[in-house]
Design a protein around this nucleic acid. Structure first.
Length: 621
RNA sequence: GGCGCUGUAGCUCAAUUGGUUAGAGUCCCGGACUGUCGAUCCGGAGGUUGCGGGUUCGAGUCCCGUCAGCGUCGCCA
């Protein structure tokens, strides 16, 4: 530590600078308080705001730790005051001075350092700053493209700093929790092998093996299973994953997950382990006490009640089925839908009637039509006298209307919205209506946090255009013990040892118990249309490994970016990532992806097709 | 790939049914000021309304195309 020099105050073990010898500064900008009055210190930081009175100048000096008011005045040093006139926004400076209390009545309660000010005796400009396109302290948040292009400025904003600090603490807490439980942190390869299942891979060409490619991992799935076979019975990794699919507000092409695998466990063990982790995270980072175990909902229940496998459980507005009523009513659309074995279901938007004009209902109608292919959206408004008003009310008898009212628990002011269609379309349409109206009607406290598990997912699903089963999670997912018999002939009803962690309507993580029995694995491959040869071709290395003493094992992956987003109360994942990409997976800061030298391509034996060259030229124009 | 929203000064936004010289705040430049903390006051600069085409006597505003950012559907084992 410093024992010499012009500073009477030196970094203590409480200081953010503890243990780091610094010749440039003795304290951070968030550190000096009334305790330090009279001491000499050296600060470094960025010029945040300048208040120049001609005779005296105030500057807020900013760094990661906070802000300190710095005073330049002629009493202390007239020459330095003149120098201070050259300062502009975001200059980087080093100042030496003394700490003194602020005059009576002039403390700033908004600052941790607000009781003192720093009187400068010496100023050194370490670096100037061009006039920035925006300043970190400005009230309005600049457009996102500008923020991404000048990310080094954007990251200086308080909100970004807070979010990334929260992210760091979340990851540390996750790691500490796992370390306490004897997990071992293992890094798995980034350059791996493409396994053409699931998402599109990002490919990396090989120079040595011309014409062959590595793939960036979509998840370390196979490696972590192999670690279990190797006997490392509790593994974690903060793993970067890559998926070349289109982006969303909650989806980036590269993202980070807490990847975790355990041996000699069943679903409840993994769920219980994560329950404890969430309890600790909620307590340590949000001050919330979570009751354990976290609530669990089966997949079927979630779809029936909310139309989605990651429902937002911060509010009700559950789906009501009235297919039976529809089959007897006089409304042709409803009746024919019910007769065709499809569904008539709806939701009650409590108190929405006065707020939802015909125009806004039309917007909802267009949404379910355009996005999900629903044929329409029926609605009933519950009037002051308790009667149901609707353009289609005339097709219903008094009794039928009364039954509708009772089934939806309709009170005056409520708006009932119904979709008559396939199970899938009614789920999607009503889910999106519920999600949207939940926000618009403020049906929940935006600060509330709701954690839950969705369990017992189907093993298989069928694609739109094929009768072939595909794995809902991945082909190594184990069926529930009591469903093993269903693999023969009743595969659609097989439920998996799969579990998703849902926070506020977002899938925050998902995992499964894996198959460790090769006869079951063969059966599952068979149902997925994979013969032994092609299974061997794709996953041979894993199938081989499973034959050398694989213990029962399973795990989970938590989307760290999403967890940060939810804990920070944000609605977009880019604000939780230091250097995110745009919706087109473009990095505006570094301008990646970009062209490479022809020589590099030659080295790899790669040529660019004429079509791609034409497309590229068009983009540049 | 589809649908939708947005694009106006460095930044954040405004501009009536298509109608005079496209405005405000902020930032920037110059000046004043010894207690501010979103300092204040005075003066000034700053625009090919994303780009290209069209309709019109006249387009920031309407139409077509295109580019970019965002949202969403498909997609994401």
């Amino acid at each position: 530590m410093m024992t010499q020099g012009p500073n009477s105050a030196v970094a203590t073990h409480h200081s953010p600078l503890r243990g780091i010898f610094s010749v440039l500064r003795t304290h951070t900008c968030g550190e000096l308080t009334i305790e330090n009055v009279g001491q000499t210190a050296t600060l470094c930081g960025w010029v945040d705001t300048i208040r120049d009175f001609g005779g005296v100048t105030f500057i807020d000096l900013r760094d990661r730790y906070g802000r300190t008011q710095v005073v330049f005045n002629p009493d202390s040093n007239a020459q330095v005051l003149a120098e201070a006139g050259k300062l502009k926004n975001e200059y980087v400076i080093k100042i030496i001075g003394t700490v003194r209390p602020r005059p009576d009545g002039q403390t700033n309660k908004k600052l941790a350092t607000g009781e003192i000010e720093f009187v400068v005796t010496d100023l050194e400009i370490l670096n100037e700053c061009k006039t920035p396109p925006f300043v970190p302290g400005q009230k309005e948040v600049p457009g996102e493209d500008l923020r991404l292009k000048h990310r080094y400025l954007d990251l200086r904003r308080e909100k970004m700093l807070q979010t990334l600090q929260l992210r760091s603490r979340i990851i540390k807490t996750m790691r500490d929790y796992c370390a306490d439980k004897n997990f071992i942190d293992i890094e798995t390869p980034i350059l791996g092998r493409s396994t053409p299942e699931g998402a599109r891979d990002y490919l990396v060409p090989s120079r040595v093996f011309k014409g062959k490619f590595y793939a960036l991992p979509q998840s370390p799935q196979i490696y972590k299973q192999i670690m279990m076979i190797a006997g490392y019975d509790r593994y974690i990794q903060v793993a970067r994953c890559f998926r070349d699919e289109d982006l969303r507000a909650d989806r980036q092409p590269e993202f980070t997950q807490l990847d975790l695998e355990m041996s000699f466990v069943d679903s409840d063990d993994v769920i219980g382990m994560i329950d404890g982790m969430m309890q600790r995270l909620a307590k340590d980072l949000l001050g919330l006490d979570l009751q354990l175990p976290l609530p669990r909902l089966t997949y079927d229940e979630a779809m029936t009640r909310f139309g989605h496998d990651a429902p937002d459980l911060r509010f009700g507005m559950e789906i009501v089925d009235c297919t039976d009523l529809a089959s007897t009513c006089g409304f042709g659309v409803f009746k024919s839908t019910a007769d065709a074995g499809k569904f008539v279901r709806g939701v009650n938007a409590k108190g929405a009637a006065p707020k939802y004009s015909r125009k806004r209902i039309d917007e909802l109608t267009n949404m379910v039509k355009d996005d999900f292919g629903a044929k329409g959206l029926a609605w009933f408004r519950c009037e002051e006298d308790g009667s149901l008003f609707s353009p289609i009310a005339k097709f219903f008898s008094e009794d039928e209307l009364a039954e509708l009212k009772s089934r939806f628990d309709a009170q005056p002011g409520d708006l009932l919205l119904m979709i008559a269609d396939t199970w899938e379309i009614s789920c999607k349409g009503l889910y999106s209506i519920r999600k949207r109206m939940g926000v618009e009607l403020e049906l929940f406290d935006p600060k509330a946090m709701h954690f839950s598990w969705i369990v017992e997912f189907p093993m298989f699903e069928k694609g739109d255009d094929s009768q072939q089963w595909s794995a809902m999670h991945h082909p190594f997912t184990a069926p529930r013990d009591q469903d093993l018999a269903k693999l023969d002939g009743d595969a659609g009803k097989t439920r998996a040892k799969a579990y998703d962690l849902v926070i506020n309507g977002y899938e925050a993580g998902g995992g499964t118990i894996r198959i460790h029995d090769s006869s079951i694995q063969q059966k599952v491959f068979g149902l997925l249309g994979l013969d032994e040869e092609s299974a061997q071709e794709r996953f041979g290395f894993l199938l081989d490994a499973l034959k050398y003493g694989a213990p029962p094992h399973g795990g989970i992956a938590l989307g760290i970016d999403r967890v940060v987003m939810l804990f920070a109360g944000l609605d977009n994942i880019r604000d939780c990532i230091a250097f995110p990409k745009t919706q087109k997976a473009y990095d505006m800061l570094t301008e990646a992806p970009n062209v490479v030298e022809t020589l590099q391509l030659d080295d790899l034996g790669i040529g660019i097709s004429e079509d791609a060259k034409i497309a590229e030229t068009t983009v540049e124009d």
